[in-house]
Design a protein around this nucleic acid. Structure first.
Lengths: 157, 157
DNA sequence: AAAATTAATGCAAAATATTTGCATTAACAG
DNA sequence: CTGTTAATGCAAATATTTTGCATTAATTTT
């Protein structure tokens, strides 16, 4: 159930709420089509920026469509395994930085298996990211890149 | 105090513990050179992977150099403002993904001011990241890029 | 269309994690 | 050494996340 891929067209429909066939969608991923789940999708769509569980919960309360906070947790957890929703994957912990923050860029290679994290700095990457930002009319302050995978030691073993 | 830049050579010294002049280092950033601070640096250096506050605390306890968990919080918070330590910057919240996870890549442009997050997919970026991974003998499973800055709307206003 | 099945929800409470206030300790300037 | 004050420790308040179980409601079966 972890790596189910979701059809991009469907996601587009969800985002813009045109003709979103929730029953069909949920059925296709083996879940029931429930009101709380539709409401969470609505909330995320309308809010349109990263939010905490609590914020989703409160947004719904304001709309008088409150559902239990515990349910919000469970729904988002499930959505995450579907790739429908995204949460920063790292342990969220601290790493001592090998490279100064002066570049405003932090790059990490983190191994899923042994948990090792290597830090890197790559001028190409910075350049590409700056270009992306510029194209979007964005003034970049800092970059963060994380590449999750299997390190050489682990896949040798 | 937010954007103090730390000398890269000093960080290298810290990491490898050769001739680390803790007093000089802390003084240069306007902090006192205390045992708990030196211990936290040692812990992060020795552990060498992302850790939670609790893990740092427990590691120190095992070494019989326990310091209070609250202190660990405060030290890491301070270190973070120095850029000595790094923690994923996003609110850590959820975003509804516009793009399917099938590429294994998530790119976000997130505005510091208004909190808006735009999602992007960029083949160049993927290519560069794959190259970085390959060079390090890494088998990449997924990428995450976040560009933090000011969006066009905000800097127009 | 009703009954049966069982996933999903809500509620209460437990477990964790984080923050705050204040008294005490210890860095360090003079 | 002494005084000053940043930094720490402790206790307790808050906030966040998880768990167990009874109930509800979506879907399947008859």
């Amino acid at each position: 159930m972890q790596n189910i891929c979701i059809n991009r067209g469907t996601l587009y429909d969800i985002l813009y709420m045109h003709s979103f066939d929730s029953t069909g969608f949920f059925r296709s991923v083996g879940l029931r089509d429930t009101l709380p789940r539709r409401l969470v999708i609505t909330a995320l769509t309308e809010i349109g920026r990263p939010v905490s569980h609590k914020e989703v919960h409160e947004w719904l309360k304001k709309k008088r469509t409150a559902i239990n906070l515990v349910t919000v947790y469970r729904i988002l957890e499930k959505f995450e395994t579907l790739g429908l929703v995204h949460k920063q994957p790292t342990s969220g912990g601290f790493v001592l930085c090998a490279l100064s923050a002066e570049h405003g860029h932090h790059g990490f290679l983190s191994c899923q298996q042994c948990g090792t994290v290597e830090e890197f700095a790559d001028p190409d990457l910075c350049r590409v990211e700056n270009a992306i930002a510029r194209k979007a009319g964005f003034i970049p302050a800092s970059h963060l890149s994380e590449i999750v995978g299997i390190c050489s030691t682990c896949h040798a073993a």
